[in-house]
């Protein structure tokens, strides 16, 4: 059954949006979306989703827990445009409005294995002091007009952000036909240092 050369390779990602730790945010949901290059196609699963609205537990290690499943399978002919997971976390405030609390982005790992990714979050700052003041009065801080902005490198030089908190994502990756397609065998989760603490 195993062919000597494949015409495409497959990547399956499963996992979950586990939790987030954001100061001054008690009641929030997370929108996630996977973006990829032109050579990638979804075989199965959904690429975007929206979690429940969760409230922080009480206690010293209070976190926003979502435990939301991610399950998607891709096929591709080119590793360029490897899928990225974008998180946007919104707080539901006392008036029922959705207030942006942070954006984050991470590439899916390129080697098979189990990974826990700590995603640092950031939100944009208003471009002028006047807008900063009006958004403070209105209680609605600036958002990105394009939710896919965190996944692209363009226009970053004119963006000012404030980093706020982190999110934890679990990802399990399995690949098929990468080797027969010509890609080298890879080491798994190389360095666990990045997980759960610090960078």
């Amino acid at each position: 059954m195993a062919a000597d050369s494949a015409t495409f390779f497959m990547v399956m990602a499963t996992g979950q949006l586990e939790c987030a730790d954001i100061p001054d945010c008690n009641n929030a949901y997370c929108k996630f979306m996977l973006v990829h290059g032109d050579d990638w196609h979804v075989l199965d699963g959904v690429e975007d989703g929206i979690t429940q609205i969760t409230r922080k537990s009480s206690g010293p290690n209070a976190q926003l827990v979502w435990n939301f499943p991610i399950d998607v399978t891709y096929k591709s002919t080119n590793a360029f445009g490897w899928p990225q997971l974008i998180l946007s976390i919104f707080e539901v405030d006392a008036l029922g409005r959705d207030v942006i609390k942070g954006y984050g982005c991470v590439h899916l790992p390129t080697a098979a294995g189990r990974y826990v990714r700590k995603v640092r979050l950031f939100r944009p700052l208003s471009s002028s002091l006047m807008q900063q003041f009006t958004s403070w009065i209105a209680g609605m801080p600036a958002e990105f007009s394009d939710p896919k902005f965190p996944a692209s490198g363009e226009g970053r030089e004119v963006t000012r952000v404030r980093s706020t908190g982190t999110a934890l994502v679990q990802l399990n990756i399995i690949t098929k036909d990468m080797a027969t397609f010509g890609y080298s065998e890879e080491a798994g989760p190389a360095d666990q240092r990045n997980e759960r603490s610090g960078f």
């Binding site: 290059g37 080119n78 590793a79 360029f80 445009g81 490897w82 990225q84 984050g104 982005c105 590439h107 995603v119 640092r120 979050l121 950031f122 700052l125 965190p150 996944a151 692209s152 490198g153 363009e154 970053r156 030089e157 963006t159 000012r160 952000v161 404030r162 980093s163 706020t164 960078f199």
Partner: peptide, 27 residues
């Protein structure tokens, strides 16, 4: 892909590290 660029400016809270989260994808 693009082989050069500039990241966002981060204004982190006191005592925290800067976050750029700038994607690289080159072939």
């Amino acid at each position: 892909g693009t082989d050069q660029g500039q990241t966002q400016v981060d204004h982190p809270p006191e005592g925290e590290d800067a976050v750029w989260s700038h994607p690289i994808d080159v072939h």
